[in-house]
Every structure is written in structure tokens, then in C-alpha cells.
Design a protein around this nucleic acid. Structure first.
Lengths: 326, 326
DNA sequence: ATGAAAGCGCTAACAG
DNA sequence: CTGTTAGCGCTTTCAT
């Protein structure tokens, strides 16, 4: 079943059939219709492979997730996939699992398949070395960024997000703010903590990205004076909240708590529901996709593109209340 | 940069170059090497599109996730992607978002691109109508299954998993078991509940797939007598545990609790960590991929392939203890 | 308005 | 052992 068969069925040449099917050239309306009818009748589906070979574009992009696909990559991927799909692009999925060998293998596969471009995503916001030097197709890094400043990366403004969280806590009257977050060596923990530090009543507590650590940190803080917690993640926030409430502190009346990530399952299951900083990963993925599409169309936008985070307010910081201490 | 350039650089014909690069035909070792050197020197990457057009296989499969990619599709996808990658297959990602229009659009895209096969995944274990009748390529359904029994589906044995959970609770001496689960109309809730019912001390409590519902159900149960809870999901289990503990019941001493899904972030964050039923979604994805590869190679295995669930035991059912009631 | 023909990059059958 | 050639299915000049 090729365009030959359609042409034969419609009694025209393949060239004419091609024009009819693609709305090109100048054809009599009647002819066009006749070809289309024949195509429908035969259930003809044009072979994209052949077209690709002819026109030189595959309308395909590769998506490499450096670390394994996790909670962060998903919204990124979906946003990107959706935006690319709107541009008629298909997405080849490559899960590199944090393995440089796999990454290079996938890269070669993608180049061999002549993708029009590549988006690289991953969990770690930290800058990473470029995929490879001098790639023949545009690459955009989403969430992860490249150490080469000439590469196109789109990243969340984590420092800005942290600042918004702090400002919000201050706006509801809190003055004694503490910060509990992930591992000190983790770039996101560092960036968020640095942005918060000027407003903190004590040095940040670094630990793990887990609820258990949140609970532990909460316990450690019980004999200190504070009226707000900015947590480096929703999981940590939830752990903190649990401990505080078990110890009789009211949230948000006694202590307001705000998390980071706005991970639905965490923020809604927490009691009370958590205010949080949303990095808009879906939008990030979309933005990355659009930058890639632009680059493919010859309008690259090199450099780091920083996108704002958004505050999502829920009960855990709901009550402005009075300033309770000091 | 085509094979022509390589041939020219090596001083051979394109045919010879092709053979050298693909280890076909009979060539002098020296010639073969000369061609390879030229290819390396020029950084030649064979054009997979052209090869595809010639040999008729794309070594690409489509992966359609019916509902949006979520917690369940991810391990499925990754398992499948990994297994397919081992077979040199690339994966085209299609997120249909529960929209039949999108699904059909993607299906056409995939057919147009001449994928060698399609895997369909999704969150709902419930059977769904086939993608389309008489597809020219093999399709396998993973987790979701097709209503057409002739289609190839691979699904978890949810009833068996529920039975294992119940047996485990009985094995540690529990006799008054209750079941709290998701919406009654949800196929997974039904299947799991049906398997549990003979062993239950009261009718199942149907509600939602949320922690909040688990808490609520826990509260409703407080004035009943029971020594074990089989929850339809880890989230529900966690909610139940929280309520029980707040009310002074010890888990697992007074009430053993087991969940379903073995969702790491839930089972580990719960206090105590939750025993759970694991559907081995990664293995499911792998199995689906292998069935698809087999079908592509002319050895289809039609029908429903049921895979066992696995019990993962943690503290929430850790203590055998004495039978406390009855 | 339509048809004929060249060619995208590669492989494979057939000559030499 | 190596070169020549004929396509894979489609698009696109260029004639007619």
C-alpha cells in the first residue's frame, strides 16, 4: 500500500497523487478529491520514513533523562511532549539512568536516527557537562543545566522561590524562621538555603530529602523558639508538621510551615495541607520544548533561561495571626 | 556526510563501504579497515532513516499511555523501555491523557512512522476497548488490558496479591480482618475486595484512593473489633495507621496493617513502615516488551498474561504476637 | 493541470 | 574480492 497504489486507483500519476494528498501544486478540485477518495478507500497512510528521507527532517526529537525518570522528570517530560506534539513532533524516550555509557549510547542512537533536536532532563538542578561537543542538532537542557554557558538551559529560579517563601512567612507576621532541608552537598539544598539564610533565626538544618528527616529535625527544634519553618521539600515539611503537632504545637497558629515542590500527594495528605513553592515543571518542560522548536527553526536562544517559581498557599500558613514571639 | 563521502575517502564504491561498515559480504580485512578508518575520521554516522526505508523495519515501537503518565505508568514504561532498548528498539512516547481523540491521533502518527509495534499502558487495570481493529502491527497492553480476548495483555494478579495479603495476616494470627479500599466502581478496588471478602469480619469500606479516606475510615472503625487492616492502597493504609495510632492503638501489636502498591515513598514514610503488595510493574513492563518483541519476530502470544504479585513485609505486620481477640 | 523523472542515503543482488 | 545498479516511498522540479 503505497502512494503508487493510490495513484493507480485514482487514475493519476504518483506526482499528482502526492500533490493532491499534501495540498500542494495546482490541481483541479475534482482530481484532488478523486485521489483523496481513493486514499481513504484503500486506507492509505503515507510513509513518514520515505518523506523524511526526501525532505531531510524527521519531526522527531530525542528526550534524554539523565537520572532515571522520577517525580521531577515526569511533569517536565509531559510538558515538553505536549508542546512538541503541538508542533507535530514525536518524542523518542531515552532513560539514561545516570549512566554515562547509556547516555552516550542513546546519543548516538538519536543522531543515527537524525532527530531534529534533543532535550535533556534530569532530577538534579545542578549544572552538568554538555552531552557532547559540537552536536549537529540543537540541544536544550531542562531543569538540569549545562556547564557550558553557551548551551541553552531552562531552569527554575529556586533562589527566587525560596525568597518568596520567606517573604510570605514574614508577610504573615513571622519573624523567627527556621529552615530544614536536604543534604548540604545537594545543589538545590544549597541554593534554597542561601536565599533563606538572611531571614533565619538559626543556621539551616541540612539532612535528607525525607519525611523521616523532617520528623527528626522537628524534634531537634522543639526546645528552640521559632514561629515558622521553611522546609526544603514537601516531604520534609510534612515530617516537621507531624512532629510539631504530636508535641502539641498548632500549625499554623503556633508555627507556620511551608514546603517546596508542591507535590500534590504530599501537600494534600499533610494535616493541615501544606503551602508550598511550585517550580512549574510542566511549564519548564513546555518552555524547553518551545526553545528547542525555535532552535530547530534557526532561532536559537543560547544561555540560561531562568523561570520563576510560584507560591501555592494552603492552610499550613493560612492564619496571619499575631506575631507570637518577640 | 553520507556513505558516499566515506567511500570516496576510502577509495572504494558505496557498496563496498556499506559492506565494510555492516560486516556483510566478503571483503579483504585491509579494505574493511580502511573504510572504517575513513568513517571514523569523518565522524560518519549512518542514516537510520535511509536504512529503514530500505529494509522495511524501523526498530521503533510506540508507547501509548492512555491516562496521563503517572505513578503507575512510570515503572511500566521504564521496564519496557529498558527491555526494548536491549533489543535495539527505540521508543516513541505518546501521552494520550485519557483523551480518545489524542489516542487516535497518536495511533495514526505511529502507523505513519511505521513503528514495528505498540505497547499500550495506563493506570486503570480495567479492560478497555482495543486501540483499533486490524492494526498492521502487533500491540500489547500492559497493566491495562483489552476487552478483545485475542489481544495480548499482561496484567498483575491483583486478586492473587490480595489473597497473599490476607494469608499473611492470617499467618501472623489475625482473625478479625477489615478491608478499606478505593471507589466501589473502580475495577482494582472490586477485584482486590472480592478476593479479600471471605476472610473479612465486616463488609469492605469503599471510598477513595487517598490518605484522607484512610484516616476517615480508621476513625469509623474505632468502635469495632478488629486486629488487622488490609488496605487497598498504601495511601489508604497510611491514613488508617495514622488514625489508629492517634487513637492509641499500637501497630502492629494491636492492629496489623498491610497496604497495596508498595509505593516506596509511602511505605517508608509511614510509621511504622508498611508491609505491602507489590505488583512488580517494572517486571510487567519488561514482560510486555518481550511479548511485543516476540510478536514482532513472528511469534505472537495472544491472550491475557497474568503475573503474580509479591508480598513485601515491613514492620506494620512484623509481630506475630498472640491472637488478641476471639 | 498533469506527468515524467530525478534523487534523498542506504542495502543487496548481481556482475565482473 | 569489489563495483554497478536497482530500488525502498515519497516529493519536487521541469516539461508538456
Amino acid at each position: 500500500m503505497t502512494i503508487r497504489d493510490v495513484a493507480a486507483a485514482a487514475g493519476v500519476s504518483v506526482g499528482t497523487a502526492s500533490k493532491a494528498l499534501n495540498d500542494r501544486g495546482t490541481l483541479r478540485a475534482e482530481t484532488r478529491q478523486r485521489v483523496r477518495d481513493a486514499a481513504d478507500r484503500l486506507g492509505f497512510e503515507a510513509n513518514a520514513v520515505a518523506r523524511t528521507l526526501k525532505v531531510g527532517r524527521t519531526y522527531t526529537v530525542g528526550m534524554i533523562t539523565t537520572d532515571s525518570i522520577g517525580r521531577f522528570s515526569i511533569p517536565l517530560m509531559l510538558g515538553a511532549e505536549d508542546a512538541l506534539g503541538a508542533g507535530q513532533m514525536s518524542v523518542l524516550l531515552c532513560d539514561a539512568r545516570d549512566d554515562p555509557i547509556r547516555e552516550q549510547y542513546y546519543l548516538r542512537t538519536l543522531l543515527t536516527r537524525r532527530v531534529d533536536g534533543i532535550v535533556v532532563t534530569g532530577r538534579r538542578a545542578q549544572a552538568r557537562p554538555p552531552l557532547a561537543p559540537d552536536l549537529p542538532v540543537p540541544v536544550v537542557y531542562a531543569f538540569v543545566s549545562s556547564t557550558d554557558p553557551a548551551d541553552c538551559s531552562v531552569v527554575p529560579d529556586e533562589a527566587g522561590g525560596a525568597a518568596k517563601a520567606i517573604e510570605h512567612l514574614q508577610a504573615i507576621g513571622r519573624r523567627r524562621i527556621v529552615h530544614v532541608t536536604g543534604p548540604e552537598h545537594h545543589s538545590s539544598a544549597q541554593v534554597r538555603a542561601s536565599a533563606a539564610v538572611p531571614a533565619l533565626v538559626r543556621p539551616p538544618l541540612f539532612g535528607e530529602w525525607s519525611e523521616a528527616w523532617g520528623r527528626q529535625a522537628g524534634a531537634m527544634l522543639l526546645n528552640e523558639e521559632f514561629d515558622a519553618v521553611f522546609a526544603g521539600s514537601d516531604q520534609i515539611a510534612r515530617g516537621v508538621v507531624d512532629t510539631l503537632r504530636s508535641a502539641g504545637r498548632r500549625v499554623p497558629e503556633d508555627v507556620a510551615v511551608i514546603g517546596f515542590d508542591n507535590w500534590d500527594v504530599m501537600v494534600t495528605a499533610s494535616q493541615p495541607p501544606l503551602s508550598s513553592v511550585d517550580m512549574d515543571l510542566d511549564g519548564l518542560g513546555r518552555a524547553a520544548a518551545n526553545l528547542l522548536l525555535a532552535a530547530i527553526n534557526g532561532e536559537p536562544a543560547p544561555g540560561r533561561h531562568v523561570r520563576p517559581c510560584r507560591l501555592v498557599l494552603r492552610e499550613s500558613t493560612a492564619i496571619a495571626g499575631a506575631v507570637r514571639l518577640g
